[in-house]
């Protein structure tokens, strides 16, 4: 009888230990996977942000006529910049026409809502040349006057504000602690103040 009780209690202890260790292991794996996905997504997002920051500062560089520096922003109902184009001269004086264009790619479910995703494609002199991640949920470009007032007129703009939100590229986003990354910057391209 004592031997039987020993066996039963040892089986119970083993079962409890196994459950605790399996749960711990699963949680560790899940955290590690989430961390990797978030890191990869953030890296992509910040690389795109870096490109935007460096290039938008050049808007109008080497261009004399204000009207030629940038075009009005084409937006959708949510205020996303479907298309934004501008010009600048590179170091050799060659004119560069750049367009950032939002192209639909996919959709994701966050908080049980289906949300369309886009890729921000970059065109240089009409030819596709890089761009952002394919998981951009929101991409907004706004013109500001010197006092910070929003304006739609590129002729009045002295600052450009860019904000975008990108979601994680894989996994069930409702399971993630932070399913999105928000980035923003407000730039004062030197030539817009001239």
């Amino acid at each position: 009888m004592i031997s039987l009780l020993d066996h039963i209690s040892s089986t119970m202890v083993y079962g409890a230990l196994a459950l605790v260790l399996i749960a711990t292991q699963l949680r560790a794996q899940e955290t590690s996977i989430q961390q990797t996905i978030v890191y990869a997504s953030k890296k992509q997002t910040l690389e795109f942000a870096d490109m935007v920051e460096r290039e938008f500062k050049l808007i109008g560089s080497g261009i004399d006529a204000r009207a030629d520096m940038m075009q009005a922003i084409e937006t959708d109902e949510q205020g996303n910049a479907l298309s934004f184009s501008f010009r600048y001269d590179d170091d050799a004086g060659t004119p560069i026409q750049v367009e950032y264009r939002m192209v639909p790619t996919d959709s994701v479910t966050i908080n049980r809502r289906s949300i369309p995703l886009y890729e921000v494609q970059r065109f240089r002199n009409g030819t596709r040349d890089g761009g952002g991640p394919r998981t951009v949920r929101r991409f907004r470009v706004q013109f500001l006057t010197d006092s910070g007032t929003l304006t739609a007129d590129p002729g009045e703009a002295e600052l450009v504000r860019v904000t975008f939100t990108s979601t994680l590229p894989m996994g069930d986003l409702d399971d993630f602690f932070l399913p999105e990354t928000n980035w923003g910057i407000t730039l004062r391209p030197m030539n817009l103040a001239i």
């Binding site: 961390q35 978030v38 953030k42 910040l46 600052l159 504000r161 904000t163 602690f177 932070l178 990354t181 928000n182 980035w183 923003g184 910057i185 407000t186 730039l187 004062r188």
Partner: peptide, 19 residues
């Protein structure tokens, strides 16, 4: 993860305030 997200937002706030 939360801190890195907040840092990105704080950076946007700082740059906009300066400009």
């Amino acid at each position: 993860m939360m801190k890195s997200e907040l840092e990105i937002m704080a950076n946007a706030v700082a740059l906009e305030a300066v400009e």
